[in-house]
Design a protein around this nucleic acid. Structure first.
Length: 730
DNA sequence: GAGCACTGC
């Protein structure tokens, strides 16, 4: 253990930076170019400005609560008034508010503009309000998109409070499962995915006169597609002399050239922000083992900083977090310094355990949070003084060829580095320790590869075609690899959603498929279900498959978790097992407690219930007959095959291979794949000759996840044409 | 016989 402390002096200080701006507050275009020195200075700081405003939101909800409670009685209305005044005062302090007149002039003048705003500039809450105060939206509505639902909801609540109005009236929000708007709504916050759904019904988005696409630098698939949708809508509305559309792109990035070029060299406006200085330290030398380096750094800092300094450590995943947590606890027993409380934080962690992160540690105790990327932008943790950045991220990519996704640990981008560092400067000055050298940092890409270049495209393409677009000419900032597009179009054709891969049009089935907010493979399953008399079962199964993993398996209680899982297991495979879990969950009276006892994720199962309701409503609209096949699970699996027929795998060397080659399969695309050890079929002997898998994921090997055994002849019955081609290729 | 980063409809 002493070894850990030999490499104490890992760091050299690189720079001490303020996270707020050195720019002229509002300026169009080239205010970076005044002179060489200033420019260099500015460029140094540019990199620091990648911290997002929406992160403020979680903190701000408190005010909203006071306000809503205040409606209940007169005594508290005083509190409300003060709060409203406080809110107004806070507004006036924001950098955006101070330059509002210049800003409004620019907004009036330009049809399209890009707004670069740093954290704390107030752009997301203030700009829609300023526009509305001037009634620039006219008879239309202002739409403001966000990549995350929590952000859309909390910002809308904040803005409603600032405008002293009820949420859902003038100010509203729209996210999946929840539409809090009315015909009076003029400022509407919504997730980018929701606006995209609206574009299927009206590709010109005519009810909006101003569309603000916020957090554009995150480059989610939805925002990327929306760029194209609004660009085309703006042009077509102008051509047809309809009401004009004003587009405002808001971003935290400094790499605006790509955006600007895409939007016909539109003006770019910079807004300063207001955060605290963060000192950045880089490792002097290359660290071969970042987990080890992280633990060293934690105890180095632990011995030298006051106990009330909370640490935030960025790691890649659950397993790593659990390992590091174990190591910290072991070392802490003998280390000097204040007592330690370690809090894990990752998306798969049950909500109750996540909450530990926001509980203040007892005085004199050090809090160390071990988090995945979830802490980078999705959640904000107050009082973080030190960030420890391992510099790695777990990234999912996809290759159309085999249909397999790859999950791999990679070096993060520079943008991610600044984003992570910024988490230390939210409420006070802080420090960020990077477990890699300054040279390493400079050699990294400025941004992560946009999602649209590395994800399956079938659902995006189906949506585009449903919105009347032609995939081959649709304007995207970054063009996905042709192979990916081809593979996804082929799949849509095989599913019967489109008539042709060239200049595709929706078929009748395709039109129905596009109304479901799920993967095309899954919507095909639902549409096939009445034929197999099992829509009731399929709604449940598809809802669970569309949600995150419902099993929670902590490392230290693995054996017990696996044992408890036994009672749900079906010899037919994982799909029926999941169905058993979902049915049992629906029947359980005390769901939270029941989930805890059964090592299941309550949040994800509840989410699946909501998805099921939504899917059921769509099925009703489409006049589909909802019936149950009872225990005839063959029907369920055959029906599943109707959408997932491209996901079959055959045992190598045929069934005769026997137990010796269990787990060795080859997919229809010819890729070698193994049964994932967590599968219900992993221990099945003899190993099933033909499998139907839900997902193909490459980690250390290529694994089939969520798998059922099927009869070889089913494929011929369900998808004869595909089966013939498959046979020819095998 | 190995572990699923994070969003979203």
């Amino acid at each position: 253990m002493c070894v850990l402390f030999t490499s104490l002096n890992l760091y050299c200080e690189v720079h001490h930076i303020r996270m707020d701006s050195k720019y002229a507050s509002v300026g169009v275009g080239n205010n970076l170019k005044s002179n060489g020195l200033k420019r260099k200075h500015a460029v140094e700081n540019i990199k620091v400005k990648k911290i997002k405003l929406s992160n403020d939101n979680v903190n701000k909800t408190n005010n909203v609560k006071v306000e809503t409670n205040g409606h209940d009685n007169i005594k508290e209305s005083k509190v409300v008034k003060e709060t409203v005044q406080d809110l107004q005062e806070a507004r006036r302090q924001l950098p955006v508010y101070m330059v509002r007149n210049r800003l409004l002039e620019e907004i009036k003048k330009n049809d399209t503009m890009i707004l670069i705003g740093e954290t704390g500039s107030g752009k997301t809450t203030q700009i829609p309000q300023l526009i509305h105060e001037q009634r620039l939206e006219g008879a239309g509505t202002i739409a403001v998109t966000q990549p995350r639902r929590v952000a859309a909801i909390t910002i809308a609540m904040r803005v409603a409070a600032e405008m002293n109005t009820d949420i859902g009236s003038i100010v509203g929000y729209s996210v999946r499962f929840e539409d809090v708007t009315s015909p009076r709504t003029k400022v509407k916050y919504l997730t980018d995915g929701m606006l995209l759904r609206e574009a299927i019904l009206d590709p010109l988005l005519k009810k909006y006169s101003i569309i603000v696409l916020d957090e554009a630098h995150e480059r989610t698939v939805s925002t990327d597609v929306l760029f194209g949708i609004v660009k085309l809508a703006q042009k077509e509305r102008a051509d047809k002399k309809l009401n004009p559309l004003k587009i405002i792109i808001m971003s935290a990035t400094m790499d605006v050239d790509t955006f600007r070029k895409y939007f016909h060299n539109c003006p770019v406006i910079y807004l300063e922000g207001r955060t605290f200085p963060v000192t950045i330290y880089h490792s002097k030398m290359k660290q071969d083992d970042y987990q080890y380096a992280a633990v060293c750094t934690i105890f180095q800092l632990h011995a030298t900083t006051p106990a009330n300094h909370d640490f935030l450590v960025f790691l890649t995943g659950q397993e790593e977090i659990e390992t590091v947590m174990y190591n910290i606890k072991q070392i802490a027993k003998e280390a000097t310094g204040p007592p330690i409380r370690v809090c894990p934080l990752y998306a798969g962690l049950p909500a109750a355990k996540q909450l530990q992160v926001w509980r203040e540690a007892p005085p004199g105790t050090r809090k160390i949070i071990l988090a995945t990327n979830i802490a980078e932008a999705s959640v904000t943790i107050p009082r973080i003084k030190c960030v420890i950045d391992t510099g790695v991220v777990k990234e999912r990519t996809w290759s159309g060829g085999t249909g397999a996704e790859r999950l791999a640990v990679r070096a993060g981008s520079q943008a991610a580095g600044w984003q992570r560092a910024g988490r230390a400067g939210r409420t006070q000055p802080g420090a960020a320790y990077r477990l890699f050298t300054a040279d390493d940092f400079r050699s990294r890409p400025l941004h992560q590869t946009p999602e649209i270049l590395r994800c399956p495209l079938a659902s995006t393409l189906l949506l585009l075609i449903a919105a009347g677009a032609e995939p081959s000419t649709f304007p995207l900032i970054d063009t996905p690899p042709p192979d990916s597009v081809k593979a996804s179009l082929t799949l849509l054709k095989e599913l019967g959603a489109i008539d042709s891969e060239v200049n595709p049009k929706l078929t009748v089935i395709g039109k129905k498929m596009s109304t479901f907010p799920i993967e095309p493979k899954y919507s095909k399953v639902l549409l096939s279900a009445p034929e197999y008399n099992c829509l009731d079962e399929m709604l449940s199964l598809i809802a669970v498959l569309s949600s995150e993993n419902v099993f929670h398996t902590p490392m230290h209680k693995r054996e017990e978790a696996i044992k408890v899982k036994q009672k749900f297991l079906s010899p037919l495979g994982d799909h029926i097992t999941l169905l058993n879990v979902f049915k049992a969950f629906c029947k359980a009276p005390l769901k939270k407690q029941w989930c805890k006892e059964n090592y299941l994720n309550h949040k994800n199962l509840t989410y699946a219930c909501e998805v099921r309701q939504q899917l059921l409503a769509i099925c009703h609209k489409l006049n589909l007959t909802v019936s149950s096949c009872g225990q005839a699970y063959d029907q369920v699996l055959k029906c599943l095959l109707c959408g997932l027929f491209t996901n079959c795998a055959w045992q190598r060397g045929g069934a005769a291979g026997g137990a010796g080659v269990a787990g060795r399969y080859v997919t229809a695309a010819g890729a070698a794949a193994a049964l994932h050890p967590a599968s219900a079929l992993h221990a099945a002997r003899p190993a099933p000759p033909v499998l139907l898998y839900t997902e193909l994921l490459s980690t250390s090997r290529t694994y089939m996840l969520t798998v059922s055994a099927i009869q070889p002849q089913w494929l011929h019955q369900v998808a004869p044409e595909y089966a013939r081609r498959c046979r020819a290729n095998r």
